[in-house]
Simulated scan of single mutants.
Amino acid sequence: MTISFKKSYKFALKSSLYIFLFAIGGLFLLNKFYIQTDFWPLLCFAIGLFVFSFFVLQYRVERFIYRRVKRIYDDVSLLENASFRNQPVTTDMATLTREVQKFARDKKIEIETLKIREEYRREFLGNVSHELKTPLFTVQGYLLTLLDGAMEDKQIRKKYLQRAEKGVERLIYIVKDLDMITKLEMGDINIELSEFNIIDVVQNVFDLLEMRAAKKNISLVFDTKYKYPIKVIADQEKIQQVVTNLVVNSIKYGKQGGTTEVSIEDLVNNKAIVRVTDNGEGIAKSNIPRLFERFYRVDKSGARSEGGSGLGLAIVKHIIESHNEKIYVESEFGVGSEFSFTLEKAK
Rank of each mutant, 00 (worst) to 15 (best):
S4K: 14
F5R: 08
K7E: 13
F11S: 13
L13M: 09
L13H: 04
L13P: 02
L17T: 14
Y18W: 05
F22V: 13
I24M: 12
L27D: 03
L27A: 06
L29P: 03
I35S: 09
T37D: 08
T37F: 10
D38E: 15
L43I: 13
C44P: 00
F45T: 14
F45H: 10
A46W: 03
L49E: 07
F52K: 09
S53T: 12
L57H: 03
Y59H: 12
R60H: 08
E62K: 11
F64E: 11
Y66E: 13
K70G: 02
V76A: 15
L78T: 14
A82S: 14
F84A: 10
N86R: 15
N86W: 04
T90S: 12
D92K: 02
D92S: 03
D92P: 02
A94I: 15
T97P: 00
F103D: 09
R105V: 14
K107S: 09
K108R: 15
I109R: 14
T113E: 11
I116M: 04
R121V: 14
R122F: 05
F124W: 03
L132M: 13
F137N: 14
L143Y: 11
L144R: 07
T145N: 11
L147M: 12
L147C: 07
L147D: 01
M151S: 15
E152P: 08
Q155P: 00
I156E: 12
K158C: 06
L161E: 07
A164Q: 07
L171Q: 10
I172F: 08
I172S: 11
Y173K: 10
Y173T: 10
I174G: 05
L178C: 07
D179H: 12
I181S: 07
L184P: 04
M186T: 11
E192M: 05
E192L: 09
L193R: 10
I199E: 02
D200M: 03
Q203S: 01
V205F: 04
L208S: 11
E210L: 13
R212Y: 00
I218D: 01
S219R: 13
F222S: 01
K227W: 03
D235H: 07
D235W: 03
Q240L: 11
Q241S: 12
T244S: 09
V248K: 09
V248G: 05
G257H: 00
I264M: 04
I264S: 02
V268W: 00
V274Q: 01
R275E: 07
V276I: 15
T277C: 05
T277R: 12
N279V: 03
G280F: 01
E281S: 10
G282K: 06
A284T: 08
K285H: 12
N287Y: 07
I288T: 04
P289T: 11
P289E: 10
R290S: 12
L291T: 04
F292G: 10
F292V: 09
Y296F: 14
D299I: 03
D299E: 06
D299G: 01
S301K: 00
S305N: 13
G308L: 02
G310R: 10
G312I: 10
H318W: 00
I320L: 09
E321K: 07
S322M: 15
S322C: 11
Y328V: 12
V329D: 06
E330R: 13
S337D: 01
S340G: 09
S340W: 01
F341Y: 00
L343M: 08
E344F: 10
